[in-house]
Design a protein around this nucleic acid. Structure first.
Length: 426
DNA sequence: TCTGGGGTCCTAGGACCC
DNA sequence: TCTGGGGTCCTAGGACCC
């Protein structure tokens, strides 16, 4: 029995989440901005029709906001994260195996399900259930490899006649749709590779599917070769389908609300990022062996650009916020140069191990003892019960808060904060 | 004035070893 | 004087994704 994959994906997820709780947005052009209200990261159908581009700076949208009714929302990740969780739960009710792939999409293993219900009917039912239980509009694509189910989903979005569900298990239908799709639309083929493919005469999906995998490997890489095989219905994404695959790195970084020119402010920001990264690391139940810190000035600013990063192998693997902050601050001091207007900083943790997999250094001042671990888990528990940041480290209290995010048009945390739950008045 | 953040995988090249 | 070839590990950087 051939393996069958479905991809369910929320249409313009962030915009949809905003619209679910704010009826005034329905029917209007809506854009959700990145952190700092910097650029557009999600746009609904109406916003696309107005010509808003993915990644377009918000300041360029002023005219559309003033004269064409475009609404710009600040990003509200507490809301999107919670809605994503609900969406995944509905999928889990429908299919035996669900593999979340990103905040707004998940693969489902439908192998053999057509002995009970046709693939298309299955898709229609999932779509209806997600709409009923979460209010989110989705599309479903079904086919014989993850890449083809992505293609099917693309078709479901693009052609309204499909009503948002495409069963692409039939080989002739696959070839038909492939021939209509530019090669740059195929999952895994980005702008660089599609440009080179086009130069070699491969312009649409079907031409790529019919290319010789060996030749592709020689001219490109094993990644593109796998895509070719996937387009022929041979699943090659076993990596993707591993449930609960462990993370390999954790990165926290943000551009600043306003440029940073003082070392103390920078250290406060780095401390906050390091604290956040350590929390994520403990959430993964891992310890990190390597840490790196980076800072830079804006790509777009006039004058000399400064961008630098430095890494450090930790004396012993740890998930202790105090250790991680201490080393991060040390690195940040060595990276710092006076006289620049920094617009971004961040920290990356990697080289993960299981806790206790490595002997800690006997002579180190802060041993990863049970006491230290107890302290960290108590800290995490307090912050999870009483709200993020209830207990903080000293340097985070630096008086200059200007580096923090700008979110001028933030919606309420409708689903994750008691005070923000919508009230229906009769 | 204002241009995101967080990930993955693969490859090439250098250092080092035998 | 002559100075190989194969393996591993690490890191930086490229390309992709949402």
């Amino acid at each position: 029995m051939p393996q069958i994959f479905a991809l369910a994906d929320v249409n313009a997820m962030y915009c949809a989440c905003e619209s679910v709780f704010d009826p005034r947005l329905r029917g209007r052009a809506v854009v959700v901005a990145s952190n700092n209200d910097g650029c557009a990261v999600a746009r609904n159908q109406q916003a696309k029709a107005l010509g808003v581009k993915m990644g377009q700076p918000i300041f360029e949208l002023k005219d559309l906001m003033e004269n064409h009714g475009l609404v710009v929302c600040s990003s509200n990740y507490a809301l999107y994260g919670d809605m994503s969780f609900r969406f995944m739960q509905v999928l889990a009710e429908c299919a035996p195996r669900v593999i979340p792939y990103s905040i707004d999409e998940a693969f489902m293993d439908l192998t053999g399900i057509n002995t009970v219900v046709s693939f298309e009917d299955f898709g229609v039912q999932v779509k209806a259930k997600v709409a009923q239980w979460t209010g989110l509009p989705i599309c479903v694509g079904i086919s014989t490899s993850p890449t083809l189910s992505k293609l099917a989903n693309h078709g479901a979005k693009k052609y309204p006649a499909t009503k948002g569900v495409v069963d692409l298990t039939d080989r002739d239908r696959q070839r038909k749709l492939l021939s209509l799709v530019p090669v740059s639309e195929i999952w895994g083929i980005g702008s660089r590779i599609s440009k080179r493919l086009e130069e070699l005469g491969i312009k649409n999906g079907l031409q790529l599917a019919d290319a010789d995998p060996k030749w592709i490997r020689k001219h490109f890489s094993v990644v593109v070769e796998r895509t070719v095989r996937e387009l022929n219905g041979i699943p090659c994404h076993d990596d993707l389908l591993e449930v609960g695959a462990a993370k390999k790195q954790i990165l926290t970084s943000k551009s600043f609300g306003t440029p940073v020119t003082q070392l103390a402010t920078m250290l406060a920001a780095v401390t906050t990022h390091a604290t956040r990264a350590a929390e994520k690391l403990r959430g993964e139940r891992r310890e990190a062996g390597f840490l790196s810190v980076f800072m830079s000035t804006s790509r777009y600013a006039d004058g000399e650009r400064y961008a630098n990063q430095q890494g450090l192998t930790l004396p012993f693997p740890t998930a202790d916020t105090r250790e991680i902050v201490r080393h991060a601050v040390k690195l940040a001091r060595t990276l710092w140069r006076d006289g620049y207007r920094y617009n971004k900083a961040g920290i990356m943790l990697s080289d993960f191990r299981e806790p206790g997999a490595c002997q800690s250094d006997f002579f180190n001042p802060i041993e990863d003892t049970d006491r230290a671990k107890g302290l960290m888990s108590t800290l995490d528990r307090i912050n999870s019960i009483s709200g993020k940041g209830s207990v903080k480290f000293g340097r985070e209290f630096h008086k200059d808060r200007s580096w923090q995010m700008r979110r001028g048009n933030l919606s309420p945390a409708y689903t994750t904060r008691w005070a923000d739950i919508p009230v229906v008045k009769c």
